[in-house]
Computed example of a mutant assay.
Amino acid sequence: MKIGSIELGETPLFLSPMEDVTYKPFRHICKQHGADVMYTEFVSSEALIREVDKTRQKMELFEADRPIAIQVYGSNIDSMVRAAIAAEEFQPDFIDINYGCPMKKIVNKGAGSGMLQDLDKMQKMTAEIVKAVSLPVTAKTRLGWDDDSLVIQEVAERLQDVGIAALAIHGRTRKQLYTGEADWNRIAEVKNNPRINIPIIGNGDINGPEKALACLKQSGVDGLMVGRGSIGRPWIFNEIKHYFKTGQLLPPPTVAEVVHRLRDQLQQSIDWKANERSAILMMRRHFAKFFPGLPDFRTHRIKLLQAVELTDLQQILNEIVEHYGHLRVDYTNVSLK
């Protein structure tokens, strides 16, 4: 698979762009554990062109990230073009347009998956961005606004016609948010559309190697994108690759191994933020996902989510190793909800 001139190999694994998740330390951990392609957190076009410091920090890129895209969202065509030009200055490998975010605060402004209600504007915006930048432009979207407007085939054709280099599809409508199951048959229909010749990347519900292979066989997509399944399990990419190569599942990590990896992510977050408390708060979403299925673990999880001092957090992790260190963490029935 290629995006522009970027060779990504066969069935590359993409880390999905996620707000407050795919910041630099998490990207680095996922890259260490087999992710092939990265995205920044999604960036507001309006904030970017106003040079909001927090927004520009999201676009700090590092060689270990590559290949990586900066993803931008917005509803104003001129602002989106200016944002794409500004993003290009940070030298990503490609620019990605967010036509898929279902969050109410974004959709209500006509951005993200809100654009699925105005395909003419979506096509025009994409065309203007492609013309304005020299880097490849990709997009990420959903099947449609709701079950009565499953427009993904038309979206794929329109965006390909104006020059996007690849399309990532989350197999849900905007109305579904993250409920129900992702529809990989709809993604397969786009991949098998004889008019489509750009790479198609499938996204939705990949929570382990066996699910990844099933989705790949069902859809025939060029690449797979993992989102929520990587939170608390950033090594999922290596697990998938090993399964694809050997047909064998890697043994689940022990609690002691998970704690070691969690400490690594935590320390990288502290180094990046240069503020222990901010880094710990940033990590809370990850803490909630790191130890699924352990017996009588609720008290320890609450402590993890309430800690604000590094010394307290390290003590809690020591206690977890002491109580559970020999057990293996079973991700078999983990819900992505």
Score class of each variant (00 low, 15 high):
2 K>V: 09
2 K>Y: 14
2 K>C: 12
5 S>G: 06
7 E>H: 11
11 T>V: 15
13 L>E: 05
16 S>I: 01
17 P>N: 00
18 M>K: 02
18 M>Q: 05
19 E>R: 05
21 V>N: 13
22 T>L: 10
23 Y>K: 12
30 C>F: 10
32 Q>W: 12
42 F>R: 06
46 E>L: 14
48 L>G: 07
51 E>I: 00
52 V>S: 04
55 T>K: 05
55 T>W: 14
57 Q>H: 14
57 Q>V: 08
57 Q>W: 07
58 K>E: 09
60 E>Q: 14
65 D>W: 14
65 D>Y: 12
66 R>Y: 06
68 I>N: 05
70 I>S: 12
77 I>A: 08
81 V>M: 13
83 A>W: 12
86 A>E: 15
86 A>S: 14
86 A>R: 14
91 Q>E: 15
94 F>T: 01
96 D>G: 00
97 I>N: 00
101 C>N: 09
105 K>W: 13
106 I>L: 15
107 V>A: 13
107 V>L: 13
110 G>F: 07
111 A>D: 04
115 M>P: 01
120 D>M: 10
121 K>G: 04
123 Q>N: 03
124 K>A: 15
124 K>G: 04
126 T>H: 09
127 A>N: 08
128 E>S: 11
129 I>M: 07
134 S>W: 04
138 T>E: 10
139 A>C: 15
139 A>M: 10
140 K>P: 01
145 W>F: 13
150 L>H: 01
153 Q>K: 06
155 V>S: 09
155 V>T: 11
161 D>I: 00
161 D>S: 15
169 I>N: 02
172 R>G: 05
173 T>L: 03
175 K>N: 07
180 G>P: 03
181 E>I: 08
185 N>V: 01
188 A>C: 03
194 P>D: 03
195 R>S: 05
197 N>S: 13
198 I>L: 06
200 I>H: 00
202 G>M: 02
203 N>Y: 02
204 G>R: 03
212 A>V: 12
212 A>D: 10
214 A>P: 00
215 C>Y: 07
217 K>N: 09
218 Q>Y: 01
222 D>Q: 12
222 D>T: 06
223 G>M: 15
233 R>L: 13
234 P>R: 07
239 E>F: 02
242 H>T: 11
244 F>Y: 11
245 K>S: 13
246 T>C: 07
246 T>W: 09
254 T>H: 07
259 V>D: 10
264 D>W: 11
271 D>N: 15
271 D>G: 03
273 K>E: 14
276 E>H: 04
283 M>T: 05
286 H>D: 13
288 A>W: 11
290 F>A: 08
293 G>T: 01
299 T>R: 15
301 R>D: 08
304 L>V: 09
306 Q>G: 05
306 Q>H: 11
317 L>D: 08
319 E>F: 02
322 E>G: 03
323 H>D: 15
324 Y>N: 10
324 Y>W: 14
326 H>R: 10
328 R>G: 10
333 N>C: 01
335 S>H: 11
335 S>P: 01
